[in-house]
Amino acid sequence: MKMVFGIVLALSVSPAAAETLVERGAYLVNSVMVCHNCHTPRGPQGLDMSRALSGGQTFDEPAFKVTGSNITPDKDTGIGNWTDAELKHLLASGIRPNGTKVAPIMPTEFYTVLTARDLDALAAYLRSVPAVRHETPAPEYKIPLKPETPTYAGKQAAEAELADKLARGRYLLTIAHCLECHTPEGPSAVHDFAAASGKGGRTFKGPWGESISPNITPDPVAGLGQWSDDEIKRAITQGIARDGHKLKPPMAYAGYATMTAQDLDAIVAFLRTLPPRG
């Protein structure tokens, strides 16, 4: 009887329940949230993973010039002297321990939805990565930063909500900050979330040349309305469009390729529910 009960109990435990905080944090950092895209140095051959998360590319925008910070546990140039509470507060609010606000290229407005467990997981994983000494330039703010409230963000999610497929897709779409890149900006570098969330049209320049974010709403002409689920997942994980042409960075296809099938299914299902934007 005990053996039978033990088997039944083991089958009733979800994979997530057996996942450690560090494992969950690794999945979030390396896959869903693709933190390497901004926080790991990038050279002609791509990301330099020998210096992973030690400070990345520079963003020279009309409103600011900032470089992705060193988020390894180095005590002098990274987050080694931060407490877990300070790190989690930064993620959910954009406020550093010294009270200053990070530039909006760091999508902390989207991270307001992070569950308490995922915040713990991110802190645990970032403590576990190798410390790399690498000082990044101080940020330069050219104009006052305007606060934004992205679509679907603003309220912390509860772990129990993620059992629902659409709620899980909304959560993943948000912490992956898809709408940050796929929503056009209006005056003063502020996203037009109210009228154009997911419409695409932002231009990104880098070693890849120039790329323009596509429309990811279900609009049948301008967006993904005619795409199959598999075509959308192929675009996310392989960078191949419906017509077969290769998509450009900065979309982090290699990171998204390691997402679970459950999470990819949830994201695609939720994308189908976005208001169409032609």
Rank of each mutant, 00 (worst) to 15 (best):
I7F: 07
V113W: 06
T20W: 10
V102H: 00
T151N: 09
G278T: 12
L247W: 13
I212E: 06
C181Q: 03
P130W: 06
Q226L: 04
E180Y: 11
A103C: 01
G198Y: 08
L162H: 15
A26Q: 10
D229L: 13
V268G: 09
R24S: 01
R202A: 15
T149P: 12
E23S: 14
A18P: 11
F110S: 02
R96T: 00
T258E: 10
G80V: 12
T260R: 14
G169V: 03
E19W: 01
D230R: 14
F110H: 04
L172V: 01
G43T: 12
M1K: 05
V66R: 00
H39W: 08
P130R: 06
A257C: 05
N98Q: 01
H39T: 03
Y171A: 02
Y152W: 14
L119F: 02
F64G: 06
T237I: 11
S14C: 07
D60Q: 03
E185M: 14
T108L: 00
V13R: 07
P150K: 01
V132P: 09
I175K: 09
G198F: 11
D74M: 11
K155G: 09
D120L: 03
G94A: 04
L166G: 14
S197F: 13
G169P: 05
V22N: 02
P250D: 09
H36A: 06
H245T: 05
P15M: 08
R96E: 00
E109H: 02
L172Q: 02
S228W: 10
K88L: 10
R117C: 12
P73F: 10
K233T: 11
E86C: 00
A167Y: 13
P214I: 10
T273I: 08
T136Q: 05
L166E: 15
C35D: 05
P275Q: 11
G6Q: 12
P73I: 11
M33H: 03
L179F: 08
D84N: 12
L179K: 12
K248P: 03
A194G: 15
I240V: 06
T203F: 09
V4Y: 15
A252P: 12
T260H: 07
A157D: 11
A121L: 08
R51C: 02
A138E: 14
R51D: 15
E109G: 02
T237D: 14
T151V: 09
Y256P: 07
R272S: 06
C178K: 11
S228T: 15
G78H: 10
S14P: 14
K155Y: 15
A16C: 04
P104F: 00
K75T: 04
H182Y: 08
A124N: 06
S54C: 02
S50H: 13
E135R: 04
G154V: 09
S12E: 12
R51M: 13
L11K: 13
Q156E: 14
R242M: 07
L53Q: 07
F5A: 05
E135K: 13
L271T: 07
T273N: 12
R272N: 01
D120C: 04
L119S: 08
A92T: 05
A252Y: 07
A157V: 13
P249W: 10
I105N: 10
P275D: 04
P218W: 00
P250G: 13
L91N: 02
T183G: 05
R42V: 08
L9S: 06
S12K: 10
R24P: 10
H134A: 15
T77G: 11
I95S: 15
